[in-house]
Nucleic acid binder design. Structure first.
Lengths: 203, 203
DNA sequence: GTAGGACGTTACTGACCGGTAACACCTGGA
DNA sequence: TCCAGGTGTTACCGGTCAGTAACGTCCTAC
């Protein structure tokens, strides 16, 4: 009845790999399952078990499933923002290189790990308008579009706003179309981007 | 106990507006509710009541909710195909006019009634891979892209495939972005389309 | 007018799921 | 040594939802 080691070990004293704290494990698992199967299709119990913990601990860290969903959206948005920050830090005074690096990044996203498109867009589809996570998503998408404008502005394109819209929509369209109809059109989007950027007018 | 007129009248003998048969009412309501609130968020009972009927009748016309979802997807896809068919019939030998009419149609879709983006794309997001409705959606999206290729080919564009991909992705991106972040970028997509088509190379 | 088919009504089942209570356990620190 | 906080375990509640059974009612066609 009295099982030793019923509680997953975090300290690495016994050769067993040290686990991150439960909150991190839960978020990591939620991220994977929400993305792969959708938010509505994944129950909290499944998440807790996959995170090697249980529902009670989950509810000690998140007030509700909706709260977990908000944290999920915030994490994704935070990582997206971090990408931009790293890009700016890596090329603070070389906007063209920054732009090239961003296109490479897009290419990598679209070829690896994009089976189900953009996780935040998918979440927006599943979540009713008014859900607290939706503002997180909408704010992030606006920020992303603004980052693009700045990127093209810094790279001295003539029409950064219009160009940003175009690139933004192409990217969004590529990811949504990957999951309904295959990679056909999306596979050529990187080539389109490069052509578009090389032929667009500059100051 | 014995209510007269408990069954909605279909015959138009008493001034009451004649109702379409139950199956049509159910599909019409499902279409509205699935689109506005998402498939998972709408129960069969709600659909039946909104269609002025009941769950039993619904299950006499559809084997299961999944079956209803498939019919929903098929209806949407069928209407999309009908648009193309009408376009071809209206301008059988005037590809340029056909193209212009299609752009007008896109403009109309994006300005009216697109609050929640593309219903089929949303359904694909909500439905697990392997759901029978997904093949309907994927086939339709592929067909749509092929129609675009033919449209640009008929209009004697130099690179119909690439152009079709570009236009397809812009349109898809516009609709997904409308529901996560507002109409900002999407509001300019029609202008982009016209610019793109007028500046693309022709034979 | 009668038989059959389509529809309405009520009630129910069984499963799932979000969320909570109560209690036992282990660990680290004072 | 003992306390406190974080965690695990079990069991449970209430609600929702897909799907079904049984029966009554109406309309239509013959």
């Amino acid at each position: 009845m009295n099982e030793t080691l019923s509680q997953p070990r975090r300290t690495s004293d016994a050769g067993a790999p040290a686990l991150p704290p439960p909150r991190e494990r839960i978020l990591a698992v939620a991220r994977d399952l929400f993305y792969r199967h959708g938010i509505h299709s994944v129950g909290v119990e499944l998440i807790a078990e996959a995170a090697q913990t249980n529902k009670m601990t989950l509810y000690r860290h998140f007030k509700s499933k909706d709260d977990l969903v908000v944290a999920y959206a915030r994490e994704l948005a935070g990582e997206g923002d971090a990408v931009w920050q790293r890009l700016v830090e890596a090329f603070p005074n070389a906007p063209q290189k920054r732009l090239d690096a961003w296109v490479d990044h897009v290419e990598q996203i679209l070829t690896d790990s994009c089976e189900r498109g953009c996780a935040l867009a998918n979440a927006a589809v599943e979540l009713q308008p008014g859900h607290p996570a939706r503002t997180v998503i909408e704010d992030y998408k606006r920020r992303k579009r603004d980052h693009l404008v700045k990127l093209f502005d810094d790279a001295r394109y003539r029409n950064p706003d219009l160009l940003a819209d175009e690139v933004f929509l192409l990217f969004e369209g590529a990811r949504i179309s990957i999951q309904c109809g295959g990679r056909g059109p999306a596979s050529r989007v990187v080539r389109m981007l490069r052509d578009l950027l090389s032929s667009a007018e500059r100051l």
